[in-house]
Design a protein around this nucleic acid. Sequence first.
DNA 1: AGACTCGCTTGATTTTTATCAAGCGCCGAT
DNA 2: ATCGGCGCTTGATAAAAATCAAGCGAGTCT
Lengths: 229, 229
Amino acid sequence: MRASELTLVRNLPLFHEVADPHFEYLTAAALLQRFPPHVVLIDEGALPDFLHIVVEGSVELFAAHDGRETTIDIIRPVTTFILAAVIRDEVYLKSARTLTEALILMLPAEKVREVFSKDAAFARAVVNELALRYRGVVRALKNEKLRSSAERLANWILKSDEQQGRAGHVTFACDKRTLASQLGMTPENLSRNLSLLSKHGIKSGSREIVIENRSALSAFAQPTSLIDG
Amino acid sequence: MRASELTLVRNLPLFHEVADPHFEYLTAAALLQRFPPHVVLIDEGALPDFLHIVVEGSVELFAAHDGRETTIDIIRPVTTFILAAVIRDEVYLKSARTLTEALILMLPAEKVREVFSKDAAFARAVVNELALRYRGVVRALKNEKLRSSAERLANWILKSDEQQGRAGHVTFACDKRTLASQLGMTPENLSRNLSLLSKHGIKSGSREIVIENRSALSAFAQPTSLIDG
DNA sequence: AGACTCGCTTGATTTTTATCAAGCGCCGAT
DNA sequence: ATCGGCGCTTGATAAAAATCAAGCGAGTCT
């Protein structure tokens, strides 16, 4: 593994305070692997062998049941995913697959649990990470149950614009099919919702969205830190 | 506070391994309070002052936004709730109110965080608790997004029957309005779904449900440990 | 260049769920 | 026992979202 990637991981809040020997112990047995797009990394129902960390690319967390499928989250660098199953040594509740080509660091689950029980600083960092993720899922649940699909889209546009520097034009990082799934709607309804939102301050092109009237969009979206973070 | 309640709390996985002086420190400043039904204990958006523990009665976690409201979970004794906000010292994302009369133990949030940073055993117990809760919310999200309202009800019946000893008859712990909210449907649809399920092995009375054909109900419900735990 | 592919859009229809509006029945109070 | 009240049920309607079915259009391949 290259030093640059190790540094990236070392700088994650999760590993920043871990004692040097413990960090070396974890990474000595780590695997750094490059995957093509659309490869399944984790199958729900399986027991965790590794703690996964996205170093490059993006990963979709999803779940399937009885023929239906739903996207739960999209993970971008540099982030761990599905920590809870690793810590509790219980089956994964979600599956994971690459969306793009991706570079994934995998730390042996057993060693993560070992360091967790020896290294108090790591244990505290795990708590913070888990608490953060917990809050993320609660937000997702509220977003789903308290908003219509058009409102979810409107808030996604506002949030993406923030992340892209409030420039007033949002570019799609993935195809619309994936975006629709992420927002909990069909591609058809994403299309309809985009044209609906043209009545609320946006203009949507094929590759980007332009925010022409932020306050109108905001009035429709009703963003709140209690859902949108 | 009475010794019997202290013992109950002490026996929670969260507090079982905490060093004696730390446990005493936490509980010395604790408040044990009895609340009438339908009292709001926590307002989403507020900063946490206490870690709450339900000792008796039941508490509903819910969230509201833009005139809509949704039940997120029902908490029964003996359990802590909304630990993540306390640990991170960030605003609550959910509100809480008593459903029945309830006895609530409240530990000062500041002291919880203090013991958390001093007591490694407590930190590890917090991780386990948070990981468990995290998985609970993921299950709730999957239940919501991968199932119809009738399927949620069918699985609720099966699960309640398990918890009541597989006797084949489930009694309602709360009124149907509350149950409907918990299952993410209107009271009208709960009623319709109950009559729908009479085609799938149940007989529903006003105070209880009888499972007449468990395998038929199960075939309709498609229960799975990846959602139902 | 022309035709093809594939992703996106648009329209029509169905399913699911919520909302509105009566009606029914159990239970307590008088 | 009878009268009200209230929670539950039932029916009719409406809204939201999924599904089915074409059509369009920006790229690519030959």
